[in-house]
Simulated assay, not measured.
Amino acid sequence: MTDEKGLERADHEQSPALDAIPGLIRIAASSWVRTAEWSVVAGLRTGRRMLKAATDPHTAVELAQGAAAASGIVADIAKAVSSGESVPQAIQQVAASLGGTSDRRAVELHNGRDRDVESTDLRSSLREQGAKLLERSRDVWSNDTGHPAYARILTELAPDEGRILMLLLRSGPQPMVDVRTGGAVGMVSSTLIAPGLNMIGPRAGTRYVDQVPSYLNNLFRLGLVWFSKEQLKDPLDYQVVEAQPDVLAAMHSVRSAKLVRRSIHLTPFGEDFCRTCLLEEEVPPEDLPVHQAPNDLE
C-alpha cells in the first residue's frame, strides 16, 4: 500500500515537468522557425546586394565598407573581453565609441555642407563683382586713373625697392652678368657659378645692398620688372659690373670661367606704376628712358 502511494506521489511530481515538455517543444520549434526565416531573408538580402555589387561599383564599395566596419566592431568587442571586461560592458563601450564616431561624421558632414554653401556664396559674390566691373567699363564718364592693384602693391614694397624702381625709371635698363664655367668643357656643359651680379644696389643707394637679390625677386613677383637674356647696347655698363670684387671672386673660383651678359628691365606695368605712384612731379615721357620689351624674355 505504501509503495503504491509512493508511486502515485512520484507520478504526480513528474507530471508538471512532463506537461511542460510540449510547451518547450513549441517554443524551440517557434524559435527555430523564426531563426530559419531570418536566415532565409538575410540570405536573400545579402544575395541581392552581392548581385547588385557585381554590377554597381558604388554598392560594392558600400558592401566592402560595411563588412570592414562589422569586422572592426567584432574585433573591438573581443579585445575588450580579453582585457577583462564582461561581454555587456564590452558591448556598451563599443556602442559608445560608435556613437562618438557617428557624431564626428555628422559634424564633418555639417562642416562640408557649410563649405559648399560658402563656396556657392563666394562664386555668387565673384559674379556680382564681375558684373560691376563690366558695368564700370561701360561708363564713358569715368575718370579713374591708375590700376586698382597699385594700392596693394605699395603695401608690399620695401623702401629700397622703391629706390630700385626709380633707378630703372630714370636711368633705364640695368646690366647684369652671370658667371659660368668656361673653356672647352664649358662649351659642352657649362655650370652656373654666380647668377645675376649687378650694380643696382649701389647705384640706387639702397640701405641693404645684400638684400638686392630678394628685392629683385619681389619686384619680379609683382610684375614690375623682368629679367632678359638681351644684352644692353653700351658695353661700358658691363665693364663697370665686371670689375666688381664679387664678380672677380666668382671668376677666380674656377680654373676657366666665362661671363654671360644680361639685363634688367621695367615692364610696361612697372613703368606705369612708377609714373603714377612714385614720381612726385609730372615728367614728360620723352624726358625718361624708353623701356621696351626685350627681344628674348625668360
Rank of each mutant, 00 (worst) to 15 (best):
V254Q: 00
M166C: 08
L109Q: 11
E280Y: 02
M176G: 01
V241F: 00
P175T: 08
D272W: 12
G223I: 08
H265Q: 13
G43Q: 14
A28P: 05
G47K: 10
S189P: 05
R207A: 15
V260Q: 12
L167P: 07
G146F: 06
R9W: 15
S142P: 02
V212F: 04
R127A: 13
V94G: 02
A64N: 07
L44F: 12
P22V: 06
T267Y: 06
E230Y: 10
T155F: 13
L44V: 11
L51H: 12
A106Y: 00
S83D: 15
T181P: 14
S82D: 03
I264P: 00
L259Y: 06
A20I: 10
R261G: 12
D121R: 03
A184M: 14
P285E: 13
T55K: 14
T181V: 12
D114G: 03
D103P: 03
R104N: 03
L169E: 04
A60P: 04
G172W: 00
P268G: 03
P173D: 11
T267A: 09
S31L: 15
G182R: 00
L133M: 06
E281K: 04
S125Y: 06
A67Y: 11
D3C: 02
M1W: 10
L216V: 10
T120F: 13
R138Y: 15
E8S: 13
L165K: 00
K132Y: 07
R123A: 05
